[in-house]
Design a protein around this nucleic acid. Sequence first.
DNA 1: CAAATTAGTCACCAATCTTGACTGTCACGT
DNA 2: ACGTGACAGTCAAGATTGGTGACTAATTTG
Lengths: 166, 166
Amino acid sequence: MARQTIAETGEALTGHQTTQPDLGVLAARVLLSVQRELFTALAEQGFDDIAPRAGAVLAHLRTEGIRASEVARLSGQHKQVIGSLVDDLEHLGYVERRPDPADRRAKLICPTERGLLQMQAAASIMRAIEERHAAVLGTAEYAAFKTALNRVAELQQQAGHDSRTV
Amino acid sequence: MARQTIAETGEALTGHQTTQPDLGVLAARVLLSVQRELFTALAEQGFDDIAPRAGAVLAHLRTEGIRASEVARLSGQHKQVIGSLVDDLEHLGYVERRPDPADRRAKLICPTERGLLQMQAAASIMRAIEERHAAVLGTAEYAAFKTALNRVAELQQQAGHDSRTV
DNA sequence: CAAATTAGTCACCAATCTTGACTGTCACGT
DNA sequence: ACGTGACAGTCAAGATTGGTGACTAATTTG
């Protein structure tokens, strides 16, 4: 798995080991380890031809299709990157490009049958991962955690947006 | 966040917008937006010569120094990557290599005065970010969230470790 | 002392990200 | 209707980044 690489792996900068790691370090750890588990499990289920970086597209697929530029916005990646990812996924048979009836400039990225199977598999794996955490933390506590994480992600994205503008 | 990346930015694969995004997508969003805000703020405070990828090293710096291979383990990056990052940070005057008195093979990566200032600045910025979230969610709720995130990161890293072995 | 391990580096290759320019298409104001 | 500006997507090139294997030096093992 990447990058990503997360890219690979930018993190925050405080972190004496003695103190609690900060939000950035924790987010990085969760992301990397979730990615690793998810794509390992996917590979075991036969989806062994996709890399974590393709997740930027796959994570935002919908049965009705989605525009490339919307994927770019949601994933924070450039349009060119999305384009090449879609190229790859198209060759691998996970998605296909269809013209958008509502806008002749745009093309909808639609999952194929294989793409749908992959979406279901990924959703199932992620559900299992989260249920495992919920079993340790407690169902109610995990739900509260997830809600808070959602909220933090929203808040932080607004702030990140502002500071990008600066 | 890179970078990137955070990679890119591999994410999970479920995500109809109608349902709540999964753990991987949320972690990616938090990581990317925190990185963006942190490094923007650092740049405004005069630390404009460091990129998010350098965070892999900076996040694990300690005043007493730390070995390159330990940074590699903590950050999940290869030794070579750490080596080149340390090269850069050394030229920029953030860290210096000192021989490890305990092992003549090893070199300790120690922050310079500027490195210490940067560490303090980063810690302060991250504190401000987290306090902002705490103000919205409530102090107690945010503390609970942070604790849960820590726990999830631990659990997930164990799982990720296992699946890497497979 | 010889063998196996570990820390760090060098050099090379592959993958990835970023930028700028370019073609169609849409939306808006006149 | 028409010109202007904005947006969707693609092409192509450059720079950055990441991964791999081999190598030296020092430590540990037996």
